[in-house]
Design a binder for these strands. Sequence first.
DNA 1: AGCCAGGCAGAGA
DNA 2: TCTCTGCATGGC
Length: 302
Amino acid sequence: MSAPRYQTVFQVEDYDLAATLESGQAFRWTEQGGDWEGVVGGHWVRLRPSVGRIEAQAVSDPGDWRWLRDYLRLDDDMGAILDSFPKDEPMAAAIGTCRGLRLLRQEPWECLASFLLSSTKQIPQIRQGVRWLCERFGNAVEGPEGGGRVYAFPGPEILAEVSEMALRECRIGFRAKYLKATAERVARGGLGLDAVGSLTLDEARSLLVTLPGVGPKIADCVLLFAYDFPRAFPVDVWVMRALRDLYFPGRRPLLSRLKRFSETHFGPNAGYAQQYLFHHVRMRAGRVRDRRNVEKDPLHGN
DNA sequence: AGCCAGGCAGAGA
DNA sequence: TCTCTGCATGGC
């Protein structure tokens, strides 16, 4: 191991790195005194945000850093993207509270496998499951001097060979059999992840939901967060509540109605709009939780 | 103690 | 096609 030997600086506008890396898209980033450390494309990286820039450090040769620019989607034109959102009150509020929030462009297998763990789990639990998977089954990656061991996300060929019981020891419960079965199918070429990106959105969805444990929501997460389909629109419990409360107040629209609405209302960057709504309503709920925690302060008894 | 979490699959109506 | 239920686990 060695100290970070490689570094570069990206000039950025409207990039809230902390919000982006904690927004429930990716699950491996950890914050260390304002820096963010993670593994992308087999490289350990440290990201240090400051006004108008993100400094990146690596310990293994990063080449031209293109892989990291792509991952962070530094070339997204946020002005044009925000301008494509519907001009309504909910989106105006979301834009107001999520300034600088970005989508990422992740590696398909890691994204797919991570979201296979996501059903009825909270984001901190997903992060924990992903971390245990990497520590137990991932290949070692060169990390910083004095840091802990660093591991890559285990590929499908690795997880396909792991027993369901061993996977369950990562506390992923019933999701273990889905992860193993999906890894087996991908590893033996039963579903070419490389080809998904060249399909149409509908074709790609239809293909992904044939994987065990992958339904419409997880498929759209992968299509949005890894394959860069701008109209993919994952509807989870948060987004469903947001759509109901903000666009159908006092009514009880079916999920199918909400999905149809989402396909037409949010425009060519609907996926981005979805992430803004998701983050917006989670931040509002977080403030409510914080108030409750204050009320439960030990000083006030219970 | 019970409810909920970036859901999905299978069964029955 | 819609609705209901079981599924692991952990936090509050």
